[in-house]
Design a protein around this nucleic acid. Structure first.
Lengths: 334, 334
DNA sequence: TTGTAAGCGTTATCAG
DNA sequence: CTGATAACGCTTACAA
C-alpha cells in the first residue's frame, strides 16, 4: 500500500517538460510561460506531488528550518506561562510559512552538542528564549547564523544582539502608578531574581515610580517567579511589621502566592492590600479576586521574534531591538 | 568569517581513509577496526565535523525527524497545562536522541497542507495530541507512517491506533472515592465536554463510584475545561438548590473556577464543600486552599509517546495502548 | 575490514 | 523562456 512519493522527475514526465521547469514552477520563478506553468501545476495536483525537503535543502544550502532553543531549567519550562506563550506565538507565526519549527530543549549537559548542531548548517536561524545571562556562547553562533532573543540579553561584549522585549522599567512604573493613583501610601514589592533583567528592571520601575510620587518605597523581597516563592516573600514582608497597603509583584504567579499569605494573615485584597501583578498570565482573570496586572504581549513577542528572524534569514534587515507595548489590565485586586 | 562546515570528505582526507569508513564510524557500524575508528574520531573532533542532516536523509530515506501535531483550537493550546506538559515530555525525551522535534500547530484551514507535508516523506513518524475525535484523516497517514496519539482516539473504524493514556474512568473513581471516604453524601460534579473521551469517562467514573457506594449522584454540569466554565457550572449547580457537600471537577482549572463561585456563595472549602480536581496542574498546589486532585503523569505521557514512536520507527514493536497510572494527591481541599 | 561508485531528489549554472 | 548537466554531502550495495 505504501505508495512511493512522486518526484520532481515524475511530474516533469507527466507534464512533458524538464525537471528544471517544474522546479521553477514549484518555486514560483517569474520566468515561466503561464500556460506551461498551468500544465505543470495540474500535473503536480494529479500526482499529489510534495517537494522533498532533504533534497531541496541539500541542493539549495538552505534548511528552511528554524531552531527554537529553550533552557531545560528544571521542568519548569512549560510551567512558566512566559515560555509557553512565547513558544505558542512562534509556532503560530511560523505555521503558515515554509519554515519548520525545530524545538530544542537544551539541558546544560549537552549544550555543546546543541551548539554544533546549530552551526552544522542544520538550521537557517535560531530563536533563543532564555532567562539566563552572561552566556557568551551565543556570540559565536551569532557570527554564523541569525539569532533572535526573547527578552533583552545581558549586554556584555561587543556583539549587539537582536531581541524583542518590553520596557520592563516603564511597565513596572505603570503598574505601581495604579497603586499610587488609588491613594495607597505604603507599597511593598515582591521582586524577581536579581540576576536577570526582568527582575532588576521591574524592581527599579517600582522604586522610580514611588520616588517620583514622593513616597517612601516599602519593603522589598525577592522571589524566583514561582508562586511558592511569592507566598514566602509575602510572609517575610508581613513579618517586618511595616505598614503595608499595597503590593506590586514582579509576576502573576508570585502575586497569587502572596494572595494566600495575605489571606492567612487575615488581610483582604484589595481593601487592606491592593495587589498588582505582572504578565497577565491566563489564570490571572480567574483567581479570586481577579488580578489587576501589567500585561505583557507574550504571544505577540513570540510572533515578533519569529518574524524578525525570518526577515534576517531572507536578507531583509530588521531592527536590533523591538520593544513591544505593555499595558495595564485593571481587574479587582487594585 | 563565515567558515564553511567541514564535510565527510574532508574528515576522510584528514584521517587518511575513505568516506565510507568515516560514514561507518559516524553511524557506529560494528565493522570498523577500532584503531581506525579512533583515528577517524580524532579527525572528527579536530575538524569539528557535524553531519549534514539533509544529505544524510536524502541518502538514507530517513528524515530523523518527528512531527508533533497540535490542534490550534483557539489560542488555548498552551494555556491548557495538558498540552504544555505533554509537549514538554516529548521534547525532553527526544532531546538526547538523534530525532528532531518538528512542532506543527495545525489550524483547521490548512489541515490538508499538513497532511501532505507529513506524507511527503518529510518526517519519520507523527505524534498527535488532540482532544478532537471522529477525525478519520489520520487513518490514511497511519497507513504510511507510524502515528502515536496522546489520549485515546475515538475508536471508530477498523484501524487500531497506538496511543498512551490513563484509565480516566478508574482515575475519576479514585478521586470521587476520596470524597466518599470523607463521609460526604452529596457529591456534585463539573464534567468535561461530553464529546471527548476524558469528559465522558470522568463523568462515568464519578457516577460509578457513587453508585458503588450506595449514594445518589448529585447534580452534574458540564464545562469546557476552562476555569470560567467551571465558575459558571458551579453557579448552575448551586442554583439547583440541591444539598451539596462535595464536588468532583473533571480538571483543575474548572475546580479553581468553582472555588470562586463557592466563595461568593459564602461556602467554605473544604468545610462546607470538599473539592477534588483532576490533572495536578502545576498551580494546584498553590491555590487556596491547596487542591486535592487526581494526578495525571502528563510529562510522562509525552515521554512515553515519544518513546513508543521511536520504537515503531526503528522497527521494534510496541503495544497499541499504553495506560499510565494516575494517582491521588491529597492536599487540603478534600 | 575497507574502498569504489552509484545514487538520493533538488537547485543552479549555462547554453540554446 | 526552457533544457542539459553538474553539483549538494551522505549512505550503501558491491567489490576487493
Amino acid at each position: 500500500m505504501k505508495q512511493k512519493a512522486p518526484t520532481l522527475e515524475m511530474v516533469a514526465a507527466h507534464a512533458g517538460v524538464s525537471r528544471a521547469t517544474v522546479s521553477r514552477v514549484v518555486n514560483g520563478a517569474p520566468t515561466v510561460n503561464p500556460e506551461v506553468a498551468e500544465t505543470v501545476r495540474r500535473s503536480i495536483d494529479a500526482l499529489n506531488y510534495v517537494p522533498n525537503r532533504a533534497a531541496r535543502s541539500l541542493a539549495s544550502h538552505r534548511s528552511q528550518s528554524i531552531a527554537l532553543v529553550v533552557p531545560e531549567t528544571a521542568n519548569k519550562v512549560f510551567a512558566d506561562p512566559f515560555f509557553a506563550s512565547v513558544i505558542q506565538g512562534v509556532a503560530m507565526e511560523l505555521s503558515p510559512t515554509d519554515y519548520t519549527l525545530n524545538m530544542i530543549i537544551e539541558s546544560e549537559s549537552q549544550a555543546p552538542k546543541t551548539r554544533r548542531y546549530l552551526m552544522g548548517g542544520n538550521v537557517d536561524g535560531v530563536l533563543v528564549i532564555s532567562h539566563h545571562f552572561g552566556d557568551r556562547s551565543w556570540e559565536a553562533i551569532s557570527d554564523t547564523l541569525p539569532v533572535v532573543f526573547g527578552g533583552r540579553p545581558l549586554d556584555r561584549g561587543d556583539v549587539e544582539h537582536y531581541y524583542v522585549d518590553i520596557d520592563n522599567v516603564a511597565a513596572a512604573r505603570m503598574g505601581v502608578q495604579r497603586l499610587v493613583d488609588l491613594g495607597r501610601k505604603h507599597v511593598a514589592t515582591i521582586a524577581g531574581p536579581q540576576d536577570m533583567p526582568p527582575g532588576v528592571d521591574r524592581l527599579q520601575g517600582w522604586r522610580e515610580c514611588l520616588v517620583a510620587a514622593g513616597l517612601e518605597p516599602g519593603p522589598a523581597e525577592a522571589g524566583d517567579f514561582t508562586s511558592e516563592s511569592g507566598l514566602e516573600a509575602m510572609e517575610r514582608i508581613l513579618a517586618t511589621d511595616q505598614p503595608i497597603d499595597a503590593l506590586f509583584a514582579a509576576n502573576d504567579q508570585m502575586a497569587i502566592g502572596a494572595y494566600t499569605a495575605l489571606r492567612r494573615a487575615g488581610l483582604r485584597v484589595p481593601e487592606d492590600v491592593a495587589v498588582v501583578g505582572f504578565d497577565d498570565s491566563y489564570f490571572s482573570a480567574s483567581v479570586d479576586p481577579p488580578l489587576t496586572t501589567v500585561r505583557q504581549p507574550l504571544v505577540g513577542m513570540g510572533a515578533t521574534m519569529a518574524r524578525t528572524l525570518v526577515q534576517l534569514i531572507e536578507g531583509r534587515d530588521a531592527s536590533r531591538a523591538t520593544i513591544l507595548d505593555a499595558g495595564l489590565v485593571v481587574r479587582t485586586s487594585a
